[in-house]
Design a protein around this nucleic acid. Structure first.
Length: 798
RNA sequence: GAGCCCGUGGUUUAGCGGUAUAACGUUGCCUUCACACGGCAAAGGUCCCCAGUUCGAAUCUGGGCGGGCUCACCA
């Protein structure tokens, strides 16, 4: 019998098994329509993995490993990294000390590619090191050729369906990043601001308007009041004169003006915010743009030209004060939309952009979400809410350089748009030419300079992973995928955009299930962030406690629930692994000479049938929990069984029969139950603790696995919930037996006796007949004798 | 301003109609015979508050209070 060494060292064993899995291709799987397919989130290459990643990816891996065992290896679990777009540009600028604006597009793109190549191996290593069972042999990047081709093909598909359009319209703009951004990239920040009452004039009469943005006064195109506001009814048809610049603007009436706010009458400029944009459209107002793309003021702003928005704000206010036009100023705190990546206040700029239609498809998008099972169900509300409140179509163009290029050229002569042919993807319009256009015409073409939003590509992760670009029909047979695991912060982006794309491209939802994980917070439930300095490096924790311990901790967090991170909680995973190791050591050592139990289930000793009955219930509970994405319930049930039933009670009960059997048969009975329990517990625990269970599994006797032992526990068959193991009578007897053991322990503890110390005669009364387990009870309690009679439970110890 | 989630011993948490689960921590005892990274035992809870439904509520309903998250508010 293969003996287990005394100690288990995860520092050696874990990397060893990770190499084994990879070398043996344990997780490699070519998907078929019967496969369980997982739309793994590609993490953004950014330094290193953090503890939040560790926990949410561990949770995904639980399902992958469970289903892999259940389906005999038919789990498609791809891995990719997201490494294009603004986040990557910023990473490259930071680590290389460069500015993209000072480099050529070509050089910057090359530097980005090179930087990713440098950082990626170490970055991906962290994912392997927490035991992710992804198929790393097909790791993709959202900027590699296949991803670019897939993204471009998706664009062409939508373009040909009329779901993509190009329009010059006011768009949310980040003056720092100098690009358009989408609604989903807004972040709200409370800011201090000054609300100023400014005197405009109307036919010689003062007209007081409150604003926080005096620098926008030169951009004012109208004054607006509520149609029901009696104070301003008389202004109908009149013109107001704008201070500083002196131009005249019409007075319009609009229900959206709040009468109670400020002075009840407001200026409309092009553009201060979303409402200005709305009024501009609604009242067909002229355009007076005072900003440039980099957030400075232009010639139309007169003497403010060249100042930044903030400088101009200050200067304009001073000028107005000097002219006595500021009647009142008060400090207020108000919410301002900023760009989530850089914190810069968002402006609106009329520029040509590419959009995907979503606004007129809200119904369809809401309906689609009903076709996906949300885990937990309440997370769907966030999606619904987002869709209901969409204010813009999805702007997918970015005025940046490191992204997937649009497969588009413009004809200089008449602006005609030419797109690439599907067969030539991926294309870079700076380098390639559209095959549909005769060569003679190429000189008239100029490339589309914008690149796509990173979400325009990460929204096709199912298609990238399933190889849709190479074989669309096959990929479509594999859709929808089984599950999308992701965190709740990107429901409005990643989940939403993926649904938009899949509906548009294939007319189906991208996945049948979506499993939303929570966040790891600091011990007080606050978000972790670099700025708060409360981030935790999982690498250190792996070193200290093992990857299995971190995974075990992550298994304690329900889907959707945030987990407060407390280092001490990693201890329990480590202890569980050690306990498992030691229990296995005992079990394997006591299997010496075991050649199977020759008999039917009913021939097993009662205590053994009790254990197997409990085990059967455990298997059923764990299986159902995993099927329902409720890993915490599986963990809880396992923990109970393993520590209480198996270790504390059963192992103590059968030691006598294992070490000093009165007859070989009672020993074989215990060995049968013990081996089954051990093997089953290992398998049920394998999704949570893949390394230590693999190490122990390798030492299990080969003969006892039905159908032979698998190469890896992770390819072994998930245990069946054996109905034949359930045994009501044995479970009733077992329960009372445990009560007797507890009573004796309590007695010994009260007398300060060792648990191994002998006691005198036991007189036991209990509802269940304990005569069948008398020998086991005498052995575990070390009692001199035992007398049993039926009755209300009681134990007397002589 | 709106929505969603949560509120159980010092901390984290299970249960979700019959007064409560476990871990960590605390205290005491126990080391030949898998494990002191262990075992046993003890102390510690008006299950946020109020009202209702019910024979009975931590569990259901309504209303508060507190925390977290999300969306809106940007003149």
């Amino acid at each position: 019998m293969p003996e287990l060494p005394k100690d288990y060292d995860p520092k050696i064993a874990e990397p060893k098994w990770e190499r084994f899995w990879e070398e043996q291709g344990i997780h490699v799987h070519e998907p078929t329509p019967q496969s369980v397919t997982i739309d793994t989130p590609p993490p953004t290459v950014s330094g290193r993995m953090h503890i939040g990643h560790a926990s949410s990816y561990a949770q995904q891996d639980f399902y992958a490993r469970f289903h892999r065992m259940r389906t005999g290896g038919k789990v498609f679990f791809p891995f990719g990294t997201d490494d294009n777009g603004l986040a990557t540009e910023r990473l490259v600028e930071r680590t290389k000390g460069v500015k993209s604006s000072r480099m050529s597009r070509k050089d910057f793109r090359e530097l980005c590619m090179q930087t990713i190549r440098e950082l990626k191996p170490e970055f991906v290593a962290d994912w392997k090191r927490i035991g992710m069972s992804c198929d790393f042999s097909r790791t993709y990047s959202t900027i590699d050729h296949r991803a670019q081709a897939t993204s471009q093909r998706s664009f062409l598909d939508l373009f040909r369906k009329g779901l993509v359009f190009r329009q010059e319209t006011p768009v949310s703009w980040c003056p720092l990043c100098q690009t358009a951004i989408a609604q989903a990239e807004f972040e709200n920040v409370e800011m201090q601001s000054t609300f100023n009452d400014i005197a405009f004039s109307c036919e010689g009469e003062p007209l007081v308007i409150a604003t926080t943005r005096p620098e926008l006064i030169p951009a004012v195109v109208a004054i607006a009041a509520h149609p029901d506001d009696a104070r301003y009814a008389g202004l109908a048809g009149k013109k107001a004169t704008v201070p500083l610049s002196g131009h005249e603007v019409p007075i319009v009436f609009d229900e959206k003006v709040e009468m109670e706010k400020g002075t009840g009458i407001m200026m409309v400029s092009t553009f201060g915010d979303k409402d200005d944009v709305e009024k501009w459209y609604k009242h067909s107002l002229p355009l007076r743009v005072v900003f440039t793309r980099d957030g400075k003021l232009n010639a139309l702003a007169g003497r403010y030209e060249g100042l930044t928005i903030k400088e101009a704000r200050k200067q304009a206010l001073e000028d107005l004060k000097a002219q006595g036009l500021v009647l009142q100023s008060r400090q207020i705190t108000h919410a301002v939309n900023v760009h989530e990546r850089c914190g810069t206040e968002i402006e609106f700029l009329k520029t040509p952009q590419w959009y995907i239609r979503v606004l007129d498809r809200k119904e369809e998008l809401l309906e689609a979400a009903n076709g996906i099972a949300w885990h937990p169900p309440h997370m769907k509300v966030r999606y619904d809410h987002w869709v209901e409140n969409l204010g813009w179509d999805w702007c997918i163009s970015r005025q940046r350089s490191f992204g997937v290029p649009f497969p588009v050229w413009h004809d200089k002569r008449d602006g005609t748009i030419h797109v690439a042919d599907e067969s030539q993807l991926p294309v870079d319009p700076f380098v390639d030419k559209p095959s549909s256009v005769p060569q003679a015409e190429w000189e008239h073409l100029e490339p589309e300079t914008d690149v796509m939003d990173t979400w325009a590509t990460s929204s096709v992760t199912p298609q990238i992973a399933l190889g849709w670009n190479d074989d669309p029909e096959r990929a479509e047979r594999l859709l929808p995928m089984t599950v999308r695991p992701q965190a709740h912060d990107i429901i409005r982006t990643w989940a939403f955009y993926t649904i938009v794309k899949s509906l548009s491209m294939h007319g189906t939802v991208p996945w049948r299930n979506i499993a939303i994980s929570g966040f790891v917070t600091d011990p007080h439930g606050k978000k972790m962030s670099k700025s708060k300095g409360n981030v935790v490096a999982p690498q250190d924790m792996i070193e200290k406690y093992s990857a299995d311990a971190i995974r075990y901790w992550a298994a304690g967090a329900k889907l959707g629930d945030d987990i407060p991170y407390q280092e001490k909680e990693l201890v329990s995973g480590k202890k569980t692994a050690t306990k498992l190791w030691n229990a296995s050591r005992l079990a394997l050592a006591s299997l010496e000479g075991y050649a199977g139990f020759d008999g039917a289930h009913a021939d097993l000793e009662t205590a053994d049938r009790w254990l197997l009955g409990r085990l059967g219930a455990l298997v059923a509970a764990c299986t159902r929990a995993f099927e329902e994405y409720d890993h915490t319930r599986a963990k809880f049930a396992l923990e109970q069984f393993f520590w209480n039933d198996l270790c504390d009670n059963y192992l103590e009960i059968v030691k006598g029969r294992l070490y000093e059997p009165k007859q070989p048969r009672e020993r074989a009975s215990a060995q049968f139950a013990l081996l089954n329990a051990l093997e089953t517990v290992l398998k049920l625990l394998a999704p949570f603790m893949p390394h230590v269970t693999e190490e122990i599994y390798a030492h299990l006797p080969a003969a006892d696995e039905q159908g032979g032992k698998a190469r890896s526990i992770h390819l072994s068959a998930w245990p069946l919930a054996q109905q034949s193991w359930r045994d009501e009578e044995a479970e009733r007897v077992g329960a009372d037996m445990v009560r007797v053991i507890e009573a004796v322990r309590k007695h010994k503890s009260a007398k300060a006796m060792s648990m191994g110390a002998p006691v005198g005669a036991l007189r036991v009364r209990s509802p269940a007949d304990l005569s069948a387990v008398k020998a086991d009870l005498l052995s575990v309690t070390r009692a001199a004798s035992l007398e049993w009679e039926e009755g209300e439970f009681s134990v007397e110890i002589g």
